[in-house]
Amino acid sequence: MNDMTLMEKTVETQNIKIAAKDVNVYYGDSHAIKDVNVEIEDNTVTAFIGPSGCGKSTFLRCLNRMNDTIDICRVKGDILLDGEDIYDKRVDPVQLRAKVGMVFQKPNPFPKSIYDNVAYGPRIHGLARNKAELDEIVEKSLRRGAIWDEVKDRLDAPGTGLSGGQQQRLCIARAVATEPEVLLMDEPCSALDPIATAQVEELIDELRSQYSVVIVTHSMQQAARVSQKTAFFHLGNLVEFGPTGQIFTNPEDPRTESYITGRIG
């Protein structure tokens, strides 16, 4: 992928999957996210970019309530998934996270076999009625994670024995296995070498067909390569949100331009 393809990308309008309205996040006394409004579309890769500490990861973790695990974190405002407020009291975060999967910065396979890593989600959510179904889900997920060919002969080997890139694709396969509707990725390539990064990026592009993908990235090139929509965060504010091509070629806000041209970051 290069700039040429970027220009050619057609931005089709999709259904809105997640809508955030006036979201504010506080860590104790510090105000980490300020009045963020954003709409994330289905079957689209949305990239969150911005300098470190700008709140992009924090905001991402709000989308599947991973921030609940941090005691001092408070979230205000509405985040709607298919029109339903995910911070509603009646919502069980466990069910939410099955719908909104997450892939982390560092590959974090469990200290179990490759098979058990992938089967973990389907097992806890009760997605398979028997062993045959589970086998099927595992194979399908590993194929979708573009790692099946590499591991099909050693499904019983520990997941921690794979290379970094393989581990991250395993984690993606693990996330996909629970049949989510949205995939959140928190800098999924930051711990990987360039070849592994290319493989994962290719995979992300393929995943777009079935999921709404949100990716936080440090690398503007990566955002340009994989995403259709880009949001630029700065000091907890959502500065600009729009089609990737537009953000990178013709930003409206001077801060976005400064970041893209490398003056801040």
Partner: peptide, 14 residues
Amino acid sequence: AGAAPRKHGGSLLE
């Protein structure tokens, strides 16, 4: 879109 089966089809509120 929509090729994948959606197994968590129900509302989040229930």
